[in-house]
Nucleic acid binder design. Structure first.
Lengths: 220, 220
DNA sequence: TAGATTGTTAATCGATTAACAATC
DNA sequence: TAGATTGTTAATCGATTAACAATC
């Protein structure tokens, strides 16, 4: 960003972790930190920290290190967390309801402002203090209200169509909890959360681990 | 794995996606596929597919491609999905309840067999058809039953202690939904799901995007 | 046989780590 | 000034892509 070049995903995905550690340091009233000290706490190299931060600017000072409060604010700004985002939920099932009721998102500026579902039994009910609307009203709602993000907690199959609707209506980002890859025509930004992929990674590692243990045991 | 060397995380994280696409092909009664055809469907290079698969074995045939059914079974085996896993839930709040009630996990062989909480109002109630037990019984339960995975849906702060308890009791994998990094002494496998990190990545990209758009507009 | 497509080696690209001059 | 630590360049490492001989 400093020199106009695009930042790699690897770097971006580390930023929330920096933000979290810096917040913890602030809570502990630690006012300055060196890349070396932070690297030991985080279990990464000091080089990587300095490289990562220098993509965005020169936030440190030779011989001193980094001012924690200042760096925290910078990372917050880089992550776009010094503003708020209007989020709508599409798919007001159990999972969606948990998202809306989770206060961690509001705390960081992600405000759920509306919810939609296609189930007549759910439409009209309240989730948190939001009244669930019919998905048929989706385009209309987005055109009349500022919506930054659409969280899609929908079954596979319908999610493709719904993602097209919200993208066409002008949503900037999609937070996709389904397993389907969304193929969208426009330049909407998609962030996927795939719980099944995650637990499969775990089962892979458990299996791999057991194969290795067995191999070691067989040597004896 | 083929030659005993450890597979990189990059490759492992792509496996569930291959598995998904192969399953879709099976559903469509497609019996053979070339790396080129699959690469176009998935939006990656054919080279990468062949490289990835060849870490584990030679599943294709020159001039023919891959047998979908066979490859599907191989990837299933590699991911450790040709067996089942006993999963316990620690933290039976809203989020945990959604996990237990989500049938996608059972469908792939991840069976929730017990749930624990420290809230006296929750202990003794039923989640799905599982009776929630007191966390005090955690070590005892794990020692008397086979537990492969502990899903931790707990607030930051307590999760560190609980993860130590389940790791010491002999759980093989931890599926961690809290924001805390778990520092564990043993060789337990940890897979993190961090929803806040995920949505922060989204807000980063939205902000970056808006900065770019503004820059382009200013040129005009 | 001719065409297709793999498995694998080599080339390229990108990300991480190391080193160090600049400087607080 | 001496010590510490950054920002940045160079070296290394690893992952992705390209190329092609092997072969179905």
């Amino acid at each position: 960003m400093k020199d106009g070049r695009k930042i790699s995903t690897a770097v971006i995905r580390r930023l929330p972790r920096y933000y979290r550690y810096l917040g913890d340091l602030l809570d502990k009233d630690i006012t300055r930190i060196s890349s070396k000290d932070l690297s030991q706490r985080m279990g990464i190299t000091a080089s990587q920290i300095r490289q990562d931060l220098n993509h965005f600017g020169c936030f440190g000072q030779q011989g001193y290190g980094y001012n924690v409060e200042l760096l925290y604010q910078e990372v917050k700004h880089i992550l776009g967390l010094d503003r708020s985002y209007n989020v709508i939920l599409v798919g007001a099932g159990n999972f969606g309801q948990v998202l809306i009721n989770n206060q961690n998102f509001a705390k960081r500026g992600f405000d759920f402002v509306a919810a939609f579902d296609n189930n007549p039994d759910v439409v009209g009910t309240n989730v948190g203090n939001i009244k669930v609307m019919d998905v048929a009203k989706l385009t209309d709602y987005i055109s009349k209200n500022r919506v930054d993000i659409a969280a899609l907690t929908l079954p596979s199959g319908v999610v493709q169509d719904v993602s097209k609707i919200v993208a066409d209506a002008g949503v900037k980002g999609i937070w996709n909890f389904s397993h389907d890859d969304l193929r969208l025509p426009h330049d909407v930004i998609v962030e996927n959360v795939r719980l099944t992929d995650s637990i499969m990674t775990l089962s892979y590692k458990i299996s791999e681990d057991e194969i290795l243990r067995r191999a070691v045991r067989d040597v004896w």
